[in-house]
Amino acid sequence: MTPIDEYLEDLARQGGIRIEHGRLPDGRDGQSWTDRRVTRLRPGMHARLHRCVLAHELGHHALAHTPTRFGPVHAKQERAAEEWGALRLITLDDYRHVEELRDGHVGAMALELGVMRTTLEAFQAVLMRVGDVVYVQPKMGAGSWAQRIEVA
């Protein structure tokens, strides 16, 4: 078990979230019941997929998502959980290093970072580059971002 996997399990423990392994409907890899503080993961996933699915499912708990069949809300929850998980699995320093090392090739970068391509793409979605500055989780308004990094 890697340090990041231990970190995710510690997050679950701190949140009182029980992690189960078992069959899931519709070919899913993971599912969460936030009201019961339970996440179920499909057994037999390879390490990168397991890590990313767990981070995503913990995102649903952290963001207090209530399952819905209403398409737009469901899509927004899935995107938010994926971004939440990506921000727990990838640091900006690691991203910067791997982006340079792999010349921005997303597949090679994801492999190097130990995450799935979709997780890396979710991380990239929360970055905004303006000139020589990268903003993490930018929002409307001056000074509204989680992190500001000068890159040049």
Rank of each mutant, 00 (worst) to 15 (best):
M109S: 04
F123M: 03
K139M: 10
D132W: 07
I149D: 10
V126I: 12
V115H: 01
K139T: 05
Y135R: 14
G131T: 08
M128A: 15
L111I: 08
E112V: 06
S144W: 00
V133F: 07
L113P: 01
R148H: 03
Q147W: 09
A146F: 11
R148C: 13
M128W: 15
S144V: 05
A146H: 07
G114T: 06
Q147L: 15
P138W: 04
G131C: 01
H105I: 13
Q137T: 10
R129Q: 14
K139N: 09
G114Q: 07
V136M: 11
M109K: 04
V126T: 12
I149R: 12
E121G: 07
H105C: 09
W145H: 14
Y135D: 12
A110K: 02
V133I: 13
A110R: 00
L127A: 04
P138H: 06
L111W: 03
H105P: 01
Y135I: 13
V115S: 02
V133K: 01
Q137V: 15
M128H: 14
T119H: 01
A146I: 03
P138E: 09
T119W: 03
V115G: 01
G104I: 14
E121C: 08
M116V: 09
Q137N: 14
A125I: 00
E121H: 12
Y135N: 08
Q124F: 03
A122E: 04
F123D: 05
A122V: 06
P138M: 08
W145L: 11
V130G: 00
T118A: 14
P138I: 02
M140L: 15
T118H: 15
L120D: 05
V126E: 01
G141C: 06
T119L: 02
T119F: 02
A122R: 03
V130S: 06
L120E: 10
G143M: 02
V134I: 15
R117F: 04
V134L: 15
G143T: 00
V134P: 04
M140S: 15
R129S: 10
I149W: 12
G114N: 06
V134W: 14
T119Y: 02
V134E: 12
L127Y: 07
D132L: 09
P138V: 06
I149Y: 04
E121F: 12
D132T: 09
G114I: 07
T118F: 04
L111E: 10
A108K: 04
G141Q: 07
Q147H: 08
A108E: 06
R148G: 06
A142E: 14
G107R: 11
W145C: 13
Q147R: 11
P138F: 10
G107N: 11
L111N: 03
Y135C: 11
A146S: 12
A122L: 02
Y135Q: 04
G114V: 10
R129K: 15
M116W: 01
M140H: 15
V126Y: 06
A146D: 12
G143Q: 02
G131A: 11
